[in-house]
Design a protein around this nucleic acid. Structure first.
Length: 233
DNA sequence: GCAGCTTATGTT
DNA sequence: AACATAAGCTGC
């Protein structure tokens, strides 16, 4: 059994000051920015994924302690391990992991932490279940809970369930955060790969009020002329 | 404010 | 190896 201290020490040893400096800027950890106060060890994602294999058997208590870390990569490690465990878990264990995830959203507090896990754990749990909780998350004051809600629909889209992506995008249409505009545009685009008529219906309905970034992401896979048409309407 | 570019990462 | 995706950055 690896102790929490051993895991954190292992990550500390793998850190690189230059990468940490770059990550700190890239993930907006400055005052007033969305990642305010976050601290970085400077470890690239593929290296974290290697460590996740090494520590894949960590229990929820250990993962909870890792999520409590001030270090961004320690939290990322915990979420990669948790996501991998979810994929291989039995239904009752999946229930536990899902509940654990929702109980720790305050520590899933940057876009990469959401994007590596929400579609696997929240999407994976809800794809064959009641999805009401998504609308609670989408209504949260937390930017990250709202992003988790939309990211979860990635799994629904892959299962050809397109309805929730549209409903959530409509709920989030007036969101003030650029990171939500991007996420909605991304999922709308993915939805459009399955049903382009449905995407166009959404665009025709909302083009006057959609944030520009959401629109641009959503139309990215349309033919050039159609893209141009939507951009100049 | 917008369109296009750069870097890191994941998938096939 | 080639392609697709995210984010931030930059010049208009």
């Amino acid at each position: 059994m690896d102790t929490i201290k051993e895991i954190i020490q292992t990550l500390h040893n793998a850190g690189d000051a230059e990468i940490a400096k770059h990550s700190s800027r890239f993930f907006k950890s400055g005052p007033g920015e969305y990642g305010e106060g976050d601290k970085f060890l400077g470890i690239r994602v593929p290296v974290i994924r290697q460590f996740a294999k090494q520590f894949k058997c960590s229990d929820l208590e250990t993962l909870s302690a890792l999520l409590d870390s001030d270090w961004h990569e320690v939290r990322l490690l915990a979420l990669v391990i948790l996501s991998e465990q979810f994929k291989k878990a039995s239904p009752p264990v999946r229930d536990d992991i899902f509940a654990f995830y929702l109980a720790h959203t305050d520590r899933i507090n940057n876009w990469d932490l959401v994007d590596c896990s929400a579609h696997i754990i929240v999407g994976g749990h809800l794809v064959e279940a009641d999805k009401t909780i998504l609308y609670t998350l989408a209504d949260s004051i937390s930017l990250w809970e709202r992003r988790i809600a939309m990211m979860a629909t990635f799994t629904f889209i892959r299962a050809n369930q397109l309805e929730d992506t549209i409903k959530l995008a409509e709920l989030l249409l007036k969101d003030k955060e650029d990171l939500i505009h991007k996420m909605c545009g991304w999922m709308l685009r993915e939805m459009g790969k399955r049903d382009v008529q449905r995407l166009k219906a959404f665009l025709d309905k909302h083009i006057q009020t959609m944030p520009r970034t959401m629109l641009r992401y959503a139309i990215e896979k349309l033919p050039k002329e159609e893209r141009q048409d939507y951009l100049t309407r």
